[in-house]
Amino acid sequence: MMYAVVDIGSNTMRLVIYKVEGGRPRALLNKKEMAELASFIKDGMMVAEGINRACYILDSFNLLARELGVTDMHVFATASLRNISNSQAAVTEIEDRTGLSISLLSGAQEAEYDFVGAARTVDLQTGLLVDIGGGSTELVFYKDMEIQHAVSLPIGSLSMYTKFVSRLFPTKKERKAIENCVEDMLDRYEVSNLGDCPSVCGVGGTIRAVDKLNSYFYNLSANNRFVTSENLRAMVKRLENREDKKFIPLDTLETLLKVVPERVRTIMPGMIVLNTIVKHFKVQNIYVSRAGVREGFLYRQILSKKEEEKVNG
């Protein structure tokens, strides 16, 4: 069977077409659009331009899937439509205009699906899973492959850029502001005292982009899936904008355009969020997973329900 899964994120929207054989999914197509929906939020509400943008991309994804013969499309949204005051109205309008049903995941569901999709792809039985999206950051503390505590923080790479960064890259002062915001959120959501986590399973576009930069700066294989805390800290310092410089460092811009061109604005705020979490929980190593919330959604919301239907059928 083939299934189309669409993830409506705060920074990106992504269509993945999976072929499932023997209960194991394999991605046949992975198409991403930089929707940047979080930038269309004004006074806590998603404005019309953001809804239009989401509808346009969903329509294009739906058309592409049908052209490929896949009619079973499942759409879910995370912080992009969850953390807005007109959440239900926006979801209803998008559904009416596109003819697609949208599953609006809670923060707890998003964290759970991250774990289901990702933690089993890396050899970490116990640790911390981190997913930094455009508008939210999921933290899942797990032991012996069982979730102990999960939380979704309303901060992400795009929202931190929008709130704190005045130019293309954050200055040292702006980095400090983002770090303080992250620390405040860890306290507010009562996860700041959960102990040290030497090993992290990293999920999502921000951390995959960090992995690409790590491989580029340190001449590692493109198949590398391992980032040390020392390398992360050094990269944040290396890419930071200097307070006394009016213009963006050209070498910084050239590097990002070469390695992660679609994340030129958001990669640094995302790296600062990650680095703050890494420092707080005394993380030593980050293992980067290629699977995450989409695979977790596929397992939990589609494949498990198909199995239930067979059993009850």
Results as ranks from 00 to 15, higher is better:
residue 85 S to L: 04
residue 66 R to D: 07
residue 2 M to V: 14
residue 299 Y to N: 07
residue 235 M to G: 04
residue 308 E to C: 07
residue 291 A to S: 06
residue 262 E to N: 15
residue 223 N to R: 15
residue 253 L to P: 01
residue 12 T to H: 08
residue 6 V to A: 02
residue 254 E to K: 09
residue 52 N to G: 02
residue 27 A to M: 10
residue 199 S to T: 12
residue 66 R to Q: 08
residue 32 K to L: 14
residue 131 D to M: 00
residue 158 L to Q: 03
residue 310 K to P: 03
residue 279 K to L: 07
residue 230 E to N: 12
residue 303 L to T: 11
residue 171 T to H: 11
residue 187 D to Y: 08
residue 70 V to A: 06
residue 114 D to T: 00
residue 115 F to V: 02
residue 267 I to W: 09
residue 286 I to Q: 09
residue 270 G to C: 08
residue 92 T to Y: 03
residue 286 I to A: 03
residue 289 S to G: 07
residue 306 K to P: 04
residue 266 T to G: 08
residue 237 K to I: 04
residue 281 F to I: 13
residue 290 R to G: 14
residue 75 V to C: 02
residue 83 N to L: 02
residue 277 I to A: 09
residue 31 K to H: 11
residue 242 R to Q: 14
residue 28 L to P: 08
residue 24 R to E: 11
residue 24 R to F: 10
residue 36 E to C: 05
residue 61 F to T: 05
residue 160 M to N: 03
residue 85 S to H: 11
residue 56 Y to F: 12
residue 13 M to Q: 02
residue 39 S to G: 14
residue 294 R to Q: 07
residue 162 T to I: 11
residue 29 L to E: 15
residue 131 D to C: 05
residue 252 T to D: 10
residue 100 L to S: 00
residue 236 V to W: 07
residue 286 I to S: 01
residue 20 V to T: 07
residue 279 K to C: 08
residue 209 A to Q: 09
residue 50 G to F: 02
residue 185 M to V: 01
residue 107 G to W: 02
residue 186 L to A: 11
residue 283 V to P: 10
residue 249 P to K: 09
residue 117 G to N: 05
residue 267 I to Q: 09
residue 7 D to F: 03
residue 228 T to E: 06
residue 281 F to R: 05
residue 98 T to S: 04
residue 21 E to W: 04
residue 44 G to R: 12
residue 302 I to L: 06
residue 195 G to H: 07
residue 113 Y to V: 07
residue 72 D to Y: 03
residue 285 N to Y: 13
residue 237 K to R: 15
residue 97 R to G: 01
residue 245 K to H: 08
residue 52 N to Q: 11
residue 309 E to A: 13
residue 261 P to A: 09
residue 196 D to T: 13
residue 57 I to M: 06
residue 267 I to P: 05
residue 156 G to I: 01
residue 265 R to V: 04
residue 294 R to P: 08
residue 73 M to K: 08
residue 126 T to L: 13
residue 123 D to W: 11
residue 281 F to V: 01
residue 21 E to H: 12
residue 30 N to K: 15
residue 250 L to S: 08
residue 225 R to K: 14
residue 31 K to P: 04
residue 70 V to K: 00
residue 91 V to K: 03
residue 100 L to H: 05
residue 87 S to H: 01
residue 140 V to P: 10
residue 264 V to R: 06
residue 75 V to P: 00
residue 216 Y to A: 13
residue 63 L to P: 00
residue 309 E to Y: 11
residue 71 T to F: 04
residue 75 V to E: 01
residue 204 G to T: 01
residue 144 D to H: 15
residue 177 A to K: 12
residue 133 G to C: 03
residue 147 I to S: 02
residue 260 V to M: 12
residue 312 N to D: 14
residue 24 R to V: 15
residue 53 R to Q: 12
residue 46 M to L: 15
residue 274 L to I: 10
residue 235 M to S: 04
residue 248 I to R: 10
residue 251 D to R: 02
residue 307 E to Y: 14
residue 158 L to D: 03
residue 92 T to A: 14
residue 271 M to W: 06
residue 272 I to V: 14
residue 112 E to R: 14
residue 117 G to Y: 01
residue 85 S to A: 08
residue 253 L to N: 03
residue 193 N to R: 08
residue 262 E to A: 15
